[in-house]
């Protein structure tokens, strides 16, 4: 009860502060904000303590604590940027970014289709599939495994993104060259993780399969692939943000006049920072949603694994 009242008080306080900042009353702003942030910190701490119990109520409250923290951060950002009249080149206010997003929705959608639906998804699927199939092949040939694994580990420590100009040279300016960069970036994590996963099945279970005279394919299908699934999903989760970064940065090296990376560089050059931030918001939302979907699929596919039952 006290917590709910406090939350309302903090929200109202921030609303007043933001309104005052927009109206130009910056003098009282800073001491007021200090008090508000103090109250908010106390609120977050309270929510944390309330969220530590069991049951659905505690779980809901535990979810509220980070949300409250984020909301406070956003409100503070708005009040400070508007109140102190920070130039937009340095940092636009959240409201300015939101207004820009509404205004340029069509442009943002075009860039999203070009970069995310084409380059990222195609590259992610191809890279993952190739890595997985290569791992199955390498697993059959022990010599290849001993030789290829150190090489794959080395490549994963290299700045793979640098191949973007070469891919542009090979596949042209449009999205296939970006997808190719994503393929190379996502291939090695999938290869390394799948190989580790294929080795994860227990020796006892493997002996059991052998005593049943199971073929290689049967052992693979019934025992080793299911055991490898958590590792495959780890790679899928690692690859999701990697693919987005790869596609965006690859566009820095030349692209048609559409795409998130293209927009970010050209608009940053024109100092239209609100549009750049709008692209970042879209990218962040797409990246989080992508990651979240993969995590949900993982939960559905590997519900039996100990890490999912905690």
């Amino acid at each position: 009860m006290i917590t709910a009242g406090l939350a309302l008080l903090v929200a109202a306080g921030f609303a007043v502060a933001i309104a005052a900042a927009h109206a130009g009353g910056g003098a009282l702003l800073l001491p007021g904000l200090v008090v508000l942030v103090g109250l908010a910190a106390w609120l977050v701490q309270r929510l944390t303590r309330l969220g530590e119990g069991r049951g659905w109520r505690a779980r809901a409250i535990a979810l509220l604590a980070p949300l409250a923290f984020g909301a406070v951060l956003l409100a503070l950002w708005e009040a400070l940027v508007v109140g102190l009249a920070v130039p937009m080149v340095l940092l636009p206010a959240p409201s300015a970014i939101a207004a820009r997003m509404a205004e340029s929705a069509g442009l943002l959608a075009e860039d999203f289709v070009q970069t995310f639906l084409r380059a990222v998804l195609v590259g992610y699927a191809l890279g993952g599939a190739l890595g997985f199939l290569t791992a199955l092949l390498v697993d059959r040939v022990p010599f290849l495994r001993r030789g290829l694994l150190p090489v794959a580990n080395l490549v994963s420590a290299l700045p793979v993104i640098g191949i973007a100009p070469i891919m542009v040279m090979w596949f042209g300016f449009d999205w296939p060259s970006k997808a190719a960069v994503v393929v190379v970036m996502t291939f090695f994590p999938m290869l390394v993780n799948t190989l580790a996963g294929l080795a994860a099945a227990g020796a006892l279970e493997r002996d059991l399969m052998r005593s049943y005279a199971a073929t290689h394919a049967q052992t693979l299908r019934l025992l080793r692939l299911p055991a490898a699934l958590p590792f495959v999903f780890t790679a899928l989760k690692v690859n999701a943000p990697l693919a987005l970064i790869g596609a965006i940065v690859a566009e820095f090296f030349g692209s048609p006049t559409v795409g998130m990376g293209f927009r970010i560089t050209t608009e940053a050059g024109k100092l239209a920072l609100d549009l750049v931030w709008a692209e970042i918001v879209v990218a962040a939302a797409a990246g989080s949603a992508f990651y979240g979907l993969v995590a949900l699929a993982e939960r559905a596919a590997t519900f039996w694994h100990p890490s999912m039952r905690a």
Binding site: I245, I248, M260, I264, A268, V276, I280, G287, S288
Partner: peptide
């Protein structure tokens, strides 16, 4: 999950 490198130009 945010493409941090996209922030580089900013």
């Amino acid at each position: 999950a945010i493409p941090v490198l996209a922030l580089a130009p900013i």
